[in-house]
Structures are given as structure tokens and as C-alpha cells.
Amino acid sequence: MLSQNSRLRAMKSLLYSYYVDFKSFYGIYIGIMTGLLLSKFALSSSASGSSSLSAGLVSGVFMLPIAMIIITSNSELLKKFSFPVDRNMLVLSHIILILVLPVIMLLTSCGFHLLETLAAELTLSVAENFFYTWVITKDSFLVGFAMSYIIMVCIGGITWMVFSWFYRHKIATSVVCGTFLLALVYLRDFRDAFLKLINFIFYSPTPGILFLKLSAITLISFAAGYIPIKRMEVK
């Protein structure tokens, strides 16, 4: 009971600290999305280009790995140990971040999409050379949301795993990653096999199968990333 209480307290405190940390991360994301919205409607002579929904995915795919690179670093983890926390909780909070941040980012992109539409309606009422079309169906929206989510989670999970190892075992991880990249560049058979694997993953007849494949990769990444953090010392 006492242990449960300590655990709950520590988890609440840890999540609170990540909430505080990620307010600025979210601010940056909002800034990027606002910038894209403004450039589309105020600065550019053409409002064509990808909508906020796709822009949300692209921004997330870049920002989430950066966040993972930061939160797995030794200095950041040291700061988290300022308050009581154990390594399981740390991993759990990171997994929660990887699972929750993409939802928030994608939901925010929906909000921006509505703002874009509002901006389009307003522009329509004042400019006779402006036109817009709603190219979204219910199905494509739900499938797109789910796919964007799992892609962000998967990329976030893989980055988290790689950097969880990297910061703990810099030389070994660099050697493995370097060898992998060199093999990809110089060994044709290896490259072909890797591309086949990528093709196998992404060539899926249905969104459900792709979702499952990416979920499996994410779970493996979580498991692999857990090992170095569980064993790490805080230096």
C-alpha cells in the first residue's frame, strides 16, 4: 500500500514535470503550424500546398524524434532524478509521451485545419479569384488520422530506442549504426534486402495490416529501449 502510494506520487510528479517541459514543445509546434497557415493565406499568392492535416504529420515526424533525442540524454534523465523516480516509471512516462504527443499534435492539426477552412471562407467572401474544395471523406480522415498516428508513434519509438542505447553505450551504438549505414550504401545485396523489408512493411493491402505491422515494430522498439534505461546509472 505504502509502495503503491509512493509509486503513484512519483508517477504523478514525473508526468507533471513532462507536462511542464512539453508546454514549450507544444508551443513550437503551434508556432510551426501557425507559420504554415499564415504563409498559405497571408504571404503566399497561392493557397495551394498541403493542408494542415498533412503538415501536422510532417511537423510531428520531425519534432517527435528531436524530443526523443532530448529526453533520453543523460543530462535530461539526471534532472528527472531530482525527484523520486525509478527506471520503470521513467520508461513508462516516455512511452506515454510517445503515445500521447502524436494524438495531441494530430488533434491540433485538426484545429488548424478548421482555422484554415475558416480563413478560406473569409477569403472567399472578399476575393472573387479565390476558390476552395473540401477533399476529405469520413473514411480517409479516420484512416489518415490512424496511419499518421502510428507512423509518428513508430518513428518516435524507434528514435527513443536508438538514443536510449546511444547515450548509454555511445561507441557500440555508433559502430552498429555506422556499419548499418555503410552496408546500406556500399553493399548492394544488403541494400536490396533492406528495401525489400521496407517494401514488405509498407506494402499492405489494408490500413489495418499496416497499423498492426507498425504497432509491432513500435512494441519491439519499446522493449529494446527499455533494456539500457533499466540498467543505466545516473551520472
Binding site: S3, S6, R9, A10, V20, L78, K79, S82, V85, M89
Partner: peptide, 22 residues
């Protein structure tokens, strides 16, 4: 890695907190 003990410990040194923390 024992939260039951760690909840009863405070350790203060000079690298405690994130610089950007309020």
C-alpha cells in the same frame, strides 16, 4: 531503482534542475 526508498530520500547537489524550469 527502489521507489519505496527513493520516496524517502532527497539528494541535493548543484545540477538539480532544468535551467528552463520555472
Amino acid at each position: 531503482d527502489n521507489i519505496r526508498v527513493l520516496s524517502d530520500i532527497v539528494f541535493m547537489d548543484d545540477e538539480r534542475y532544468n535551467d528552463s524550469a520555472v
